[in-house]
Each structure stands twice: as structure tokens, then as C-alpha cells.
């Protein structure tokens, strides 16, 4: 395996959890809900994914555990913000703190234990092709799932009635309600979808990225996913571009440091953030498109009057 190929493989591994979490949050925000608890849902997903794999012996069931636990956290968020109309920002922050604490408690027993890795798929012949074989046909299921999600979310949002309703609810919930759309139901479903994606993203960390449990192992990736959604102006393909760009620059600076490039390491560590923000800001110059894509009701609570 060449050095170049291995770098590309690590880029994919670094980008996938960001992509999973961001694409879920994109749907949540398109429906007008701002869930700042992505980090919390991810870390609970990470520990539950690890625990699930340990308990069942199957990393796939571990991933299912991660997904369900993310949804559980999201359900709590939905109940508080949609049902009880709590402040979304405060609740999201609380969800992150809760997730960090909860995962530390659950994961205490797992610290230092070897994990079970979710390995890449093997397709005879194709996976063994030179250069592209492992890259295109030897990834794990979650990588393909994340890419399928981008395509699926893009299609649903812009080509189906369900997506139209999600966008409408995010743009003007009062009008959507007047048209007979159940705003809260749409938002609940979106929040649950976002939770499932965030949980899966966390599971990816503890099952693929570094198959073990380390406290606080999400290391701010939930926040990066949130930022990606905004800088990508709520468009799925841009989230894809942003996640891979962030992953790529992150890995490259790592390699550059390893090869002793004489730039302060703090600066190198900041590079992925700077590069991602710069590129996404440049591609979002078109203000009209940006405004049309920004959910106007983002973060605004909705109480149906009856």
C-alpha cells in the first residue's frame, strides 16, 4: 500500500464522522430547530456503540446501539424544546454537557479495554485492484452509508414533497401550521433523524476510527459538524465538500508535522479550521442563494395556537 493511498484512506476515516453528524444536523436545522447538542449525542453514541459491540460481539450491532442511543438523546432534546418549548440554545448546550458526563460514567468500565473493529468490506477482485481497490471498494459500511445519506438527504429535501414540507416548516412555521402541516411532528422526526446520525457518527469513532473507549473522544467534532452545516449554507453537497476538506487538511498537517515542516504546530493544528472556513465562505458568496437556503425560523420556538 503506497503512502498516498494510506493518506487518502485516513482522510476518509477522518471525514466520515463529521459528515454523518453534519448531514443529520442539516436536516434538523432545515426544519427550523437548532440542536447544539450534537457533541453530546455523538459521545453517547460512541460509548454505547463500544458497549454494544462488547456486549454482543458484533460491531454492526454496536453501530445500531450507537444510532439508537443518539436518537434517545435527541428524543430528550425534542421533548424539552418542542413539547415544553424550552430554549433551544440552552437545551442543546445542556445536552452536550449531559452527554459528556453520562458517557464518562457509562464508559468507566471500558477504559483501556480493546475494542472490536468494524472492518472494511471485501469484494473479491474489486477490492484488490491496484490503487483504487481499497479506496473505492474496501471501506466499511458506514462510509458508504454516509455518502448515501448525502445523496438521499439532497434528493429528499429538494425533490420530494416530504422535503418541501421540511423546508417550509423551517422557513415559516406559522404559515406551515396554517396550511395544516403538523410543525411539531415534522420537527420531532427531523430531530430524531439528526440524533440517529450523530449517534452513528459517535459510533464510528469508537468502532472504526480508534476502536476503543477514551473519555471525551469526540474531541469537539460535534461542534465542527455544527459549524460545517452553517458554512455549507445548509446544502448537503457542500457539507460533503466541507467534511472531506476538513478531514484532508487535518491529515495533511499531521503528515507535514511528522516530516518536520518548520511551522509552529499550533498554527498547523489551526489549519483545517482556517482552510474549511475560508473555502466555504468563498463558495457562499452568492448572498441571495445563501438567504434562500437559510432556514428563517432557525431556533425560533413554535407554539400552535388553538
Amino acid at each position: 500500500m503506497g503512502a498516498f493511498e494510506s493518506i487518502l484512506l485516513t482522510v476518509i476515516t477522518a471525514a466520515t464522522p463529521l459528515l454523518l453528524a453534519a448531514i443529520g444536523e442539516l436536516v434538523v436545522e432545515r426544519s427550523g430547530v437548532l440542536n447544539l447538542g450534537v457533541e453530546g449525542m455523538m459521545i453517547v453514541g460512541a460509548v454505547m456503540g463500544f458497549a454494544g459491540a462488547q456486549a454482543t460481539g458484533s460491531p454492526y450491532l454496536g453501530a445500531v446501539f450507537a444510532l439508537l442511543s443518539g436518537m434517545g438523546m435527541a428524543l430528550l432534546f425534542g421533548f424539552l424544546t418542542l413539547h415544553l418549548v424550552a430554549n433551544q440554545v440552552a437545551t442543546g448546550l445542556a445536552l452536550t454537557l449531559l452527554g459528556l458526563g453520562l458517557s464518562g460514567m457509562i464508559g468507566e468500565a471500558f477504559v483501556g479495554q480493546p475494542g472490536i473493529r468494524l472492518t472494511g468490506i471485501e469484494i473479491p477482485v474489486l477490492s484488490d485492484l491496484p490503487l483504487v481497490g481499497r479506496l473505492l471498494f474496501g471501506q466499511d459500511v458506514l462510509v458508504y452509508l454516509s455518502l448515501a445519506l448525502v445523496a438521499g438527504v439532497s434528493y429528499v429535501l429538494f425533490r420530494t414533497r416530504a422535503g418541501l414540507i421540511i423546508r417550509a416548516v423551517g422557513d415559516n412555521h406559522a404559515s406551515a401550521h396554517a396550511l395544516g402541516v403538523s410543525v411539531l411532528k415534522v420537527r420531532y422526526l427531523a430531530v430524531l433523524f439528526g440524533g440517529a446520525c450523530a449517534g452513528l457518527a459517535g459510533g464510528y469513532l469508537s468502532l472504526v476510527y480508534t476502536p476503543q473507549w477514551v473519555e471525551g473522544m469526540t474531541a469537539g467534532r460535534g461542534w465542527i459538524a455544527l459549524a460545517l452545516v452553517v458554512f455549507a449554507t445548509w446544502r448537503p453537497l457542500r457539507v460533503l465538500a466541507g467534511a472531506y476538506l476538513f478531514g484532508a487538511v487535518g491529515i495533511l498537517q499531521f503528515h507535514a508535522q511528522a516530516h518536520g515542516v518548520a511551522i509552529p504546530s499550533q498554527f498547523m493544528s489551526a489549519l483545517p479550521y482556517v482552510a474549511t472556513i475560508a473555502v466555504l465562505v468563498i463558495i457562499s458568496r452568492n448572498r441571495i442563494l445563501t438567504r434562500v437556503n437559510t432556514p428563517a425560523c432557525l431556533g425560533r420556538p413554535f407554539v400552535p395556537d388553538r
Binding site: L164, S175, A178, L179, V292
Partner: peptide, 20 residues
């Protein structure tokens, strides 16, 4: 037909109508 329009500004005319 509402007094304060109940339209979705970010959507197209056809999308607005389709929703109803």
C-alpha cells in the same frame, strides 16, 4: 387568502402552491 401573507419566502411560487 391571508392578510399577512402566509407564503414561504425561500420557496418558489410552484413549491408554495404545491404545499397547499
Amino acid at each position: 387568502v391571508f392578510q399577512h401573507f402566509s407564503l414561504f419566502e425561500a420557496l418558489t411560487v410552484a413549491e408554495n402552491i404545491a404545499l397547499a
